[in-house]
Nucleic acid binder design. Structure first.
Lengths: 246, 246
DNA sequence: TTACATTTGTTCGTATGTATA
DNA sequence: TTATACATACGAACAAATGTA
């Protein structure tokens, strides 16, 4: 005989329900990125489950890079920092596989009506306003990457060019600190294209140079779309390192 | 007091040791792809560990796509089939995300001395012989993909063009069935390039068309390199779908 | 259709080890 | 040194899926 539990749903394992409740708590900002969540013992009491069930829920959130455990210290909400987690979303390396931190230069900032593609990718109504940022990234003195980033205005109210220029950490850290938007997952689709026009200028290549064109959707908790970007990469000296098929 | 265990190594958790022993058993071919491994109860006896420890070892192998569990049936060694597991290593989709199975046409088959890059990627001595296969893939009547595949001769003794033409399943299934080489992991690095020469002919595009150039190393158990390939993709109608950052 | 044995999945809990502050 | 927190290892009981008699 099961103990009475009003939240129990037939067919849904208890640990999945615990996981959902942890995600919901993260989603409303009760536990903040970089912060400590209650200990396993406390969470067992809170959710009225055994330690094994709780650990199974947290295990999945750790695998999904949403929580991180530190033996002896506690369990933390994953945060976007320069040191931790950055290369999880930055897949550009030198041909020899060497990674390095890019420096970023804001080339353009504007607020416009979203085009059809942006509306679809961001899940906003036709005619909605969006911010468009164009960033140029430098690596080892080269400038091989241009990011064209689209952000829905309703999630970034009052965003200004100055704020973006003054940020000292990563862009995803900026979203997190200033707009409580925590990017936890991306989807990427890669095509080849040719440089031309302003893109060729910004990358300092001749028109007709082959480039990678990487479309990325970035999501927060609850699969909320936060950002849509297209990244262009000159692969003369750099390349895209795909994650091992898993 | 711990029970005496001659295989125990200080600092290495028991479940990691169990995992290593399962991998070693797979590596020598004692449990075959597609086949059933002993039940959890039997494995507990075999390794003299508790059910929890055994499950933790198997959990990791399931996450790594090496084993697969079926409730009520048992635990199986993952196998390369047309139906199961194929899209795990095939990341080309239509622009709308639609997946379909390619048909394959062998364009060229030869045995040559490995060049420096192939030697490095396959971990073979300079001057070693390798087979080079060129495949053209069709999707929905289009021919957007060329694979240039390099295989070390010592792992594929006696490989013939006829064998390759007669295969009815995937290439990785062919390696598995005929050479007991089970590809379980790949690494991929993506660049942009321009079509030209034979490549442009095979893909039926004009010279100067931008293409994806995807370098892939494929590994078996024990990180043994099995295959090195370069895939060229015409992304006019297709694209590379990266796995979600995980 | 039914009954049963087998196998994995879920949930519970305890004891001990290891890392941290 | 001590308390706290996660990591590892143990195992019991029951649920759910599967295949077979």
């Amino acid at each position: 005989m099961q103990p009475f539990d009003p939240s129990a749903t037939p067919g849904v394992p208890l640990y999945k329900e615990v996981k959902r409740r942890i995600l919901a708590t993260l989603s409303v900002g009760e536990w903040k990125p970089g912060g400590l969540i209650p200990s396993e013992k406390e969470l067992c009491k809170l959710f009225a489950v055994s330690i094994g069930t709780l650990r199974k829920a947290i295990d999945e959130l750790v695998i999904e890079n949403i929580l991180v455990r530190h033996q002896g210290r506690g369990t933390f909400v994953v945060s976007h920092n320069r040191n931790h987690h950055f290369f999880h979303f930055f897949n550009i390396t030198r041909h020899d596989g060497q990674k390095s931190y890019p420096t970023v230069e804001l080339v353009r900032f504007s607020k416009v009506k979203a085009d059809a593609l942006a509306c679809e990718k961001l899940g906003v109504a036709a005619g909605s306003k969006v911010f468009v940022l164009i960033n140029r990234l430098s690596l080892d003195g080269n400038k091989p990457v241009i990011d064209v980033i689209t952000l829905p205005e309703h999630l970034f109210p009052g965003l200004t060019e100055q704020q973006l220029r003054q940020r000292t950490n990563t862009l995803y850290n900026f979203y997190q600190e200033n707009y409580q938007l925590n990017v936890i997952r991306t989807e990427e689709h890669i095509r080849a294209t040719l440089a031309g026009g302003e893109l060729a200028e910004w990358l300092a290549v001749t028109a007709g140079t082959p480039l990678l064109q990487i479309g990325r959707s970035a999501y927060s908790y609850d699969n909320q779309p936060v950002e849509w970007r297209i990244t262009y990469v000159n692969t003369e000296q750099y390349e895209y390192a795909a994650k091992p098929a898993q």
